[in-house]
Amino acid sequence: MRKEIFIASNYCEDLAKLYYEANFIVNAIVVYNSLNLRKYCRRVFIVKDCSSESLKKILLKFNPKKISFLLGSGFAEKFDDPNFFCNKYNFGNSIEVNNTIKSKDFFKILRKNKINFPQISFKNHKKNWIVKGQKSYGSLSVKKIKTLNYILKENEYSQRFMQGKVISVQFISENKKIKIISICEQINLKDEYTIDYLVTKDITNTYKNKIFKLIEKLTSIFDLNGLNSVELISEKKKYFLIEINSRPGLGINIVGKLNGGPFFSKKKKVLKKKILVTKIIYANKNLTINQRMIKFFKKFCDSKKFSELPNLGDIIKVNQPLCLIHISAENIELLKKEMSNTTQLIERIESMQNEK
């Protein structure tokens, strides 16, 4: 018998597909209703934002104490009522865990357990540091402010900006046991903190062991459950924890290809030789999605390679995500060529802005 799950996430297509292919009946609660989302869902509920009120309004039509659920991006950061659900049916982290990771206590716990992280301040902003929102997700609410007179708002903090290679680690945790699914290099745009793409990376066994021990320690400290990811940065051969994403993130498609689902599994769907990429395509100008664009998406944008494509009538502002592309190749040269060709393909829709 197929299990049923409610998934609430800012963007939901890759996550819905992951559970659909694991033989779940999926109900999605989303802010952005992508073109192909309904392929994987029994029901799709569209909400105006990721607030607790928006989520509760939908789920009170059912019995929130008896439904299986998973909070994805946006909702995991903002939903803060630990009594609304029954944690017995939670496929992710508890509300208490999410709340702790997005609070001041998070850094106190890291410091207590001697886990390195870039210096922070909740009182004063320092020149050339970045400003983050405690409840932010992705690169939202991250600002690089050069002036010293910036006054931190409530739920903001200042953090030393570090330059170095950023590593994103996707892993699954069940009953404090962990399985690392992928280790990716995170490539950022020229602003240095907005994500461009993730690419799977081969690393030394020594580094793998260090990462495994760190993930094991973090899982034990915070009681992590389900799909999670962490971001690390290296500086002078020392590694620092940037953040824990206590919910599925940008690497969902990579997790599905490597692990065959959202749970502990021995199944491998692609050869280890393959290099995998998930890239965010950002709009170069303001777009209103018209019928010509939709026809183009349906004809040229295969759902195996593209996800989170916009729907008819959607308004995409300049520099906002337009869609995701997912690419695999046997070597870096082929990967770069495929990534360039695919990016140029999707960017053709910008010439269709004034066409019907």
Rank of each mutant, 00 (worst) to 15 (best):
K269E: 12
M293I: 11
L287V: 09
I215G: 02
N284C: 12
D223G: 14
V255M: 11
N228F: 00
G251R: 03
F306N: 06
K269P: 10
V230E: 04
G251M: 03
S265D: 08
G261A: 05
K272W: 10
K274F: 15
K236Y: 14
I233L: 06
V277Y: 03
V270R: 04
S307V: 07
E216T: 09
L241I: 06
K266C: 15
V255H: 04
S234G: 09
E231R: 07
K269G: 14
S229L: 08
K279R: 08
G256R: 05
K257N: 05
K304N: 13
E231G: 08
K238V: 15
L258K: 00
L241H: 05
N286D: 14
L218H: 00
K273I: 14
K257M: 06
K304C: 14
K279E: 06
N311K: 14
K257W: 05
M293C: 10
G226E: 05
I294M: 02
K217A: 05
K237W: 12
D223M: 11
G313L: 05
F300V: 14
F263E: 08
P310S: 01
E231V: 08
Q291G: 09
K268S: 15
Y282Q: 01
L276K: 01
P310L: 02
N311A: 13
K273A: 14
E231L: 11
L241G: 04
L276T: 01
K299M: 09
D223W: 06
K267Q: 12
S307Y: 04
A283L: 11
I281T: 07
K304H: 10
K217F: 08
V255C: 07
I252Y: 10
G261D: 02
D314N: 07
K272M: 11
I244R: 00
R292V: 14
I215Q: 01
V277W: 02
I233H: 01
V255F: 07
I315T: 12
L276N: 00
